[in-house]
Amino acid sequence: MEAGNGVLRLERLAKRYPTGDLALDGVDLDIPAGQVLALIGPSGAGKSTLIRCVNRLVEPTAGRVFLGEAEVTALGKRELRRARRRMGMIFQEYALVERLTVMENVLSGRLGYVGFWRSWLRRFPQADVEHALALLGRVGLEAMVDKRADALSGGQRQRVGIARALAQNPDILLVDEPTASLDPKTSRQIMRLLVELCVERRLAAVINIHDVQLAQMFAGRVVGLRAGRVVYDGPPEGLTARTLTDIYGEEDWSKTIRPDEGETLGEAAAAAHAAALRPVRLDRDRVEGQV
């Protein structure tokens, strides 16, 4: 990993909550463009806090965050909002606005670019509308444009969440447990879609994930967090019983270490390249099985 010119760089990032809990304890990370990073670790290790400190939904207590050249931690309110536009966020419980339509949810990714009245009257620029429709096509939901978000299944909602994040034209995706509310099959589809989109757009992503096997399958780099510190940083193949014990504590890891079959990153990436050749269609067939 080359250092210094990453799309996202964290320097000694720390967060102590008012309750006294030290959630992050001096985290250094450097993420180059296009890298899909899986952040693993036990509950309470600080994974959610970390990605929320990046866009300052949670205010870090110490350390610095750089997005490209900009120091996010030094920005004023207005500049912070501008910086947030470049960071797409995807959530565990989807966090769609339930009573808005799919299209309104996707277009809400453009709020940082559009004035108040235009957004209130839903008069988004034509380019934004077309972009949003293309994204919905890409995630296989073009038939759902005017459905209300609360009428969708879990997998569909997460696709809308992904489209909303991409509508921002971000440099990086901050993804918080994208599969925690989904069944195993849908989880894989969603992870595959995320990785494909990152490859297509040379997007970096930080993905918090509980499922070690999914992390190994889809991420190019794995960072293990324990009690707010980085205790592992390396390729997915480097996860051994010992490193997992470092991250999570003592447990029988022999069944977890290497998924014997199924996809690997290589396969997902190859699929994504195929998708780049046939831009819109690839994921559709998979979606249809599930709609």
Binding site: R81, V97, L111, G161
Partner: peptide, 15 residues
């Protein structure tokens, strides 16, 4: 969750 998600897009207070 919904409030946080909208805030994360970089919108203004009224939006």
């Amino acid at each position: 969750g919904q409030l946080e998600a909208v805030r994360a897009t970089g919108c203004g207070w009224w939006q």
